[in-house]
Write a protein that binds this DNA or RNA. Structure first.
Lengths: 341, 341
DNA sequence: TTGTAAGCGTTATCAT
DNA sequence: ATGATAACGCTTACAA
């Protein structure tokens, strides 16, 4: 398709290929009338620029690699959308892939990306054991930025938020509602650092307020609806069941609410549930979900900015952006009575 | 980054670049021991294949362009996930973009894709007025397949389902429940053919069963939660309000349910609601949503197969796959009493 | 089974 | 302001 090349355009316009290239990328270097002749020639012959050839010649490509855990979570999709919009505004394309929380998949994706010499790579959190290989990437001159977390390692760039703090805050809120037996349904924290920090925030709040810690009330699951439902069912079956449950993602929370409904019990009358992410639908669930709002869109845009900036200047020194989260109080949590348990 | 080239590997292994290339892509053409020497050389020097150069040389790239309306709808994300998985299995990368139901954005995306000479392009339905330019693409040798619809045009490939029939069926179901005043909340049918066919299916069912058609009960909106809610509020405010409402996407349906709840009315006691898509969460809403299941995942996988097949054989003759949808009856619709209206 | 060499369509460096 | 020309890193006939 589109087999006409710059060569042919240059002939048609009676100039050299170099001039055509200039007319395309640095129009100000070309006299107006030649520029117009070139433009006309291009239009007449349906010329389509060949970015592959350009990238090869220039030794860097105008693509950005993006890894998100899953396209099936609305909240990551929001970041992806932002990334895509920002990239397109700068005439970059994105290569997307989802790791599905699997180390091998993630590595394969990174390798696949590298083959195209992208301008940079955006990673969503990352799996345990990936840290070294990312550092190697950076050392080799590849702009990388981790999103959705605040990293301890000063050598790694990130655009994220404080998962520990955010989880601490929502747990604290539950405690302020007089809950003392609080369950936690959480994603794969043994595999993903970002998730582990949520666990740690939860635990820290419990400890700081002197609440007992029931390991059985912490359930690690995949962040899906069905897993949220199963976990909640298990929690509700316990002899001393929790009066409140924090689901470390809204998807889990939605599943959890369904479990309660299936028992003909109500949220928040019989049990309070809080989520994390503030996906769009959280405001529309029944009851509307109390949750932690995460700046998914802003994260995406900012990440692109960081990558583009690094690619342009060649300065790969780590950049850190920790954005704010906020607690969105809706109707899925209630305050216990003084003597209620 | 990764500045070592095939040249250097070939020197290291004491062979020609051509042999290295063969070892990589057609190992069977290379004697085992030379192959091993090459592999060792690559490992020792951290060689990373340069797909950009390869694509240029081979005059076709191992990328597939994908356009979906929005990453913010779970159901398109499912197709995207499937596409991405299938592509990766075949060592292809995907370039993704969302049109946001905007013609200019869609065109810009297609142009951007073309510059990379992708192996093919997958389009989700497509906007009115795009048909001619897609045909031109195909004529120029670009494999294209439209997903999520069954096209009338025999020259265009599609992997989709019958939007008319599916909508007809769910409307018929509502009618079988004795509903006679049925509202419709629907996406941008004036812009998107695929959506228009849903409208037509709805109208046809009404007509076939001799039901009156109230234009005011058909509301065109963007497929978002908030729009679903607003539309439903309007419907419920009508003097003769509908006893059932079909929302032509689950997202709209979720918004609609929220509107009913806000009026302190119940679904399906006061009004029945049916959706379309069967996004994951539809089974978990309160009440669980009766809806039309769409084979989003299968569509994605099959679309990649079609593209790859066309790219390999060079045979761009149109291929048509119309998959099945099914009505998933849950709890958001009820049967009216004999004398109930 | 392996090597030679001519591209692939741009861009960048020097000249003019 | 424009042109000549050598890369860029790989693939692919064709030859050996």
């Amino acid at each position: 398709m589109a087999k006409v090349t710059m060569q042919e355009i240059s002939k048609l316009a009676g100039v050299s290929p170099a001039t055509v290239s200039r007319a395309l990328h640095s129009p100000h270097l070309v006299r107006k009338d030649t520029r117009e002749r070139i433009t006309r020639a291009m239009e007449k012959s349906d010329y389509v620029y060949n970015a592959t050839a350009g990238d090869l010649s220039r030794k860097r490509s105008s693509m950005i690699g993006v890894i998100i855990p899953t396209t099936k979570s609305l909240v990551f999709s929001t970041s992806l959308l932002a990334i895509q919009e920002a990239a397109q505004e700068n005439n970059f394309s994105i290569m997307a892939g989802s790791s599905k929380y699997d180390l091998e998949t993630e590595s394969a994706l990174i390798s696949q990306f590298q083959e195209r010499r992208p301008a940079g790579i955006i990673l969503t959190g990352f799996l345990k054991g990936q840290q070294a290989s990312i550092k190697r990437l950076i050392r080799n001159g590849m702009p990388c930025v981790v999103i959705w977390d605040k990293l301890a390692d000063p050598d790694l760039s990130y655009v994220g938020f404080d998962n520990f703090k955010a989880t601490y805050a929502v747990t604290e809120y539950l405690i302020s509602l007089r809950h003392r037996r609080i369950g936690l349904i959480i994603g794969p924290y043994s595999k993903v650092d970002r998730v582990r920090r949520r666990l740690e925030g939860f635990l820290a709040a419990l400890k700081d307020y002197g609440l007992p810690h029931h390991p059985r009330m912490i359930i690690e699951k995949e962040p899906t609806l069905i897993d949220g439902k199963e976990a909640m069912a298990r929690l509700m079956d316990m002899p001393e069941r929790p009066s409140a449950v924090l689901a470390a993602s809204d998807t889990l929370a939605m599943g959890a609410m369904a479990a309660v409904r299936d028992m003909d019990l109500g949220v928040p009358e019989n049990v309070s549930i809080a989520g994390f992410d503030d996906i769009d639908i959280a405001a529309y669930s029944n009851p509307p979900l109390t949750t932690v709002r995460v700046p998914a869109y802003e994260i995406g845009r900012l990440a692109v900015k960081v990558i583009l900036d690094m690619a342009k200047t060649g300065d790969l020194r780590a950049q850190h952006y920790c954005l704010d989260t906020s607690l969105i109080i809706r109707k899925s949590c209630r305050k216990l009575q003084k003597n209620e348990t």
